[in-house]
């Protein structure tokens, strides 16, 4: 997916940066805002932050790529995250991850070409009682099986068709 800088979003980010600059250490809050506003922090966005904060692009990128909360590539409309915490893992999370990975034809960390899905494996999300668990957006699917995973994805595909 080609990343497009929308002027309204750039303006919003710049406003936020002006606010953050009034306090010491404005880079982290700026990056959180950038991730929320654009959905990712590619070099195009890093360049804007670089100019506003007078930090080099390389330094900003170093922070962006250090933390897994930030991403440099646009994420899909639906973020599918499969919990790979201990409880979920022993109850078969790997099979669920593989099923979804096969269905969408992407590896964890990747986004489908149509930009609909990003597949992620996450650490424990604190729902061990429902293990194995996966999430699509904010919705949590507990006691998951290969079939419920398949169903959930198919439903979204249908609604997006």
């Amino acid at each position: 997916m080609k990343f497009v800088l929308e002027e309204s979003k750039v303006q919003l980010l710049k406003e936020r940066i002006q606010k953050h600059k009034q306090k010491p250490g404005p880079l982290m809050p700026t990056l959180h805002d950038a991730q929320n506003i654009f959905g990712c922090i590619p070099i195009e966005v890093q360049k804007i932050i670089s100019e506003e904060l007078d930090e080099s692009v390389a330094k900003i990128n170093g922070v962006v790529t250090f933390y897994s909360n930030f991403s440099t590539e646009p994420k899909g409309k639906h973020i599918v995250s499969v919990c790979m915490g201990t409880a979920c893992y022993v109850k078969g999370a790997k099979a669920i991850l593989d099923t979804i990975s096969d269905m969408l034809n992407i590896e964890p960390g990747q986004t489908t070409k149509d930009g609909l899905f990003t597949l992620e494996n996450t650490r424990c999300i604190g729902a061990c009682g429902l293990a194995p668990v996966f999430q699509i957006g904010d919705k949590v699917y507990g006691n998951a099986t290969k079939d419920t995973a398949k169903q959930a994805i198919e439903e979204i595909l249908k609604s997006e068709a």
Partner: peptide, 17 residues
């Protein structure tokens, strides 16, 4: 500041962004 660390852990490398 043209050079900096990229990524983390085992994947860390130094270069431009």
């Amino acid at each position: 500041g043209a050079l900096d660390f990229n990524e983390r852990g085992y994947h860390t490398y130094i270069s431009s962004a």
